[in-house]
Design a protein around this nucleic acid. Sequence first.
DNA 1: AAACACGTCAACCGCCTCTAC
DNA 2: AGTAGAGGCGGTTGACGTGTT
Length: 198
Amino acid sequence: MDKKPCNSSSQDVEVRKGPWTMEEDLILINYIANHGEGVWNSLAKAAGLKRTGKSCRLRWLNYLRPDVRRGNITPEEQLLIMELHAKWGNRWSKIAKHLPGRTDNEIKNYWRTRIQKHIKQAENNITPGQNFEVNDQASTSQVSISSAAVDTMEITHAAPANYPPNMDAYPSSLPADHSHENYWSIEDLWSMQLLNGE
DNA sequence: AAACACGTCAACCGCCTCTAC
DNA sequence: AGTAGAGGCGGTTGACGTGTT
């Protein structure tokens, strides 16, 4: 699809990139609330967003959808991710289907930033008797983890050092999005959307 | 207080697959 | 059967916040 320039030169609309603004989010939420999702390219145009259809789709699926859960991956979810990744490798969307409210992007990020790091640490500490193989490069990557190794990782992951002491205290509406100064919660956006009327 | 290092995650990129024509 | 457009997916990057020195 994007093998060709996305601006069909006939209409030289400049395409916005980078972080989404609150206004753009509201426009997208509003539009989808009224017209439904799908046919993203025409949706983007019809909604008056200077974004590609792909960008709109990604924003909706990963952030704006009302059922999306953010932050605070539970130890159960983490174990499930590890199990499914061992089974399927980097099939993030497939894995995400088994974690309601989680997106492939979130799981992918979680895996790369948290689990992979700890796997490497565990790899370094692994004793010869333990069965622990990691091949995290290819998309066919497989992880086979002995129960002992899982236990070890579970301990480290349930409360990684860089986590707040009480993960459960994380408000679900305060995403791991503490990183952006102009963040707004989805609840805010949805309530504004409701206030705008339909 | 400033500088640097590190961690996190939203968003983009490029490729692949599917579908309609 | 070939082509083009759209959606989906996995990999990667860049910006920003936080921790450390």
